[in-house]
Design a protein around this nucleic acid. Sequence first.
RNA 1: GCGAGCGUAGCUCAGCAGGUUAGAGCGUCGGGUUGUGGACCCGAAGGCCGUGGGUUCAAGCCCCAUCGCUCGCCCCA
Length: 439
Amino acid sequence: MPLPLQPYKGARDFYPPDKRLQKYMFGKWREVAERYGYEEYDAPILESLEIYQAKTGDEIVNEQTYSFEDRGKRQVVIRPEMTPTVSRMVAARRQELSYPLRWYSIPNLWRYERPQRGRLREHWQLNVDIFGIADSGAEYEIIVMVDDIFKTFGADSKMYEIRLNSRQLIDQALINYIGFSSNESRALSHLIDRKAKMDKSKFISAIDDLVSPKARASGKVEKLLALLDIDNLDNLPAMLKLHDSALDLKKMLRQLNQAGIKNTLFDISLMRGFDYYTGIVFEVYDRHPENNRSMLGGGRYDGLVGAFGVTPLPTVGFGWGDVTLANFLELHHLLPQIKTETEIYAVLLDDLEKSQAPIAKLRQLGLDLAVDWSNRKLGDQIKTANKKSIPYLLVIGRNELKNNKFTLKHLESSQEITGSLSELANHVIEERNNLKNKQ
RNA sequence: GCGAGCGUAGCUCAGCAGGUUAGAGCGUCGGGUUGUGGACCCGAAGGCCGUGGGUUCAAGCCCCAUCGCUCGCCCCA
């Protein structure tokens, strides 16, 4: 039996070009998060089972996670998401941390399920959370940051849209305005979340299955359907329109608009799967017809830190997966040509031993340099540099060693410059800095 | 977990109705003589046709199972 060459189902190998792309994406994520004053944290990939049971449904814990019993009989889960972990960390130091607390992380997460487009078993996710702010300024900051990240990747606002809703508004609508029980309301909100995927008659019959015959008879279903057709806050019935949650949403949309973010919309059917959200929720959709899906989402969850037995802490956060981001960038042609880190390929022609001094010198001067020790013909060595897309070529042969003057060739443009090692190094470093400033 | 489609060289795929030693392009490696690459020409390596079983004189092709991939569903972190 030959050994398998494929990575484990739903997981990925990162060959250098893949890793370069990942570094690029993570780099932009970090850059923007830090520009907003967020600090990076990390945590173990293993967590004890209990911390998931408090907040999520049983199915997620039992069927959609990698879980096992360790040798000490502890129930262990490979983390499927970061929110419980970060809540745990904050709760553990609830008293000593100072608020508002702004944290981010890019954890590796695992879920046990069938892989499909945009959803693998293994993925990485940018997680950003702000703790300690009850005011909607927290949501505002988070959404502005998300938008900023898109812009930093080169996207324009036509490529995506930001949809907003409020859990409080939904509760108010389903329970107080229409009059469903809280059980019916919870079941209905999960159903409404799937509305876009179902055709209308199927959706209606699914509603009928969920609600009591009495509710059906009293016209509540019609009332619900009418409500779900509303796509503008101003068209809500008065009782809802004047509710705090609707006013908050309206203010949020206005503020975003003032910040130049106009690709927003109110989507009353937007739920987010989890029950832990307590206020405004949002998702960003790709507008590309081939990928018309939610790429990231988040919202306010004020109860989770408190679930660890400490004084509750208002929190807003979001998670953004690397797979959905990569799909988006690819589809919208936003992937840059990402070069290898190596800047110089040193080709040795004559005396390998005497060539070591200039190579060491260039590295001391701060250059990333790979050496071809193969002693092959010059042309062959150049071909290798070319294939590795290393930008500069340095030839070290007897002439160079004798005169202590070297020639650096930029392979793409075929331009050559000649000079001392430090002159060449300065040139490369200058070009490197120019490139960085452009990005 | 459920349903559908697909598995032939590193990659993209051909492969006739089941009929001898399984093909192309790209890529890789080598060559086209002296210290300058990308083009072009020549050549080579590389496949138990995903795996196991079955039907048949004969299976890459048909049947069953299994694994994997893709797309839906469920669920969505």
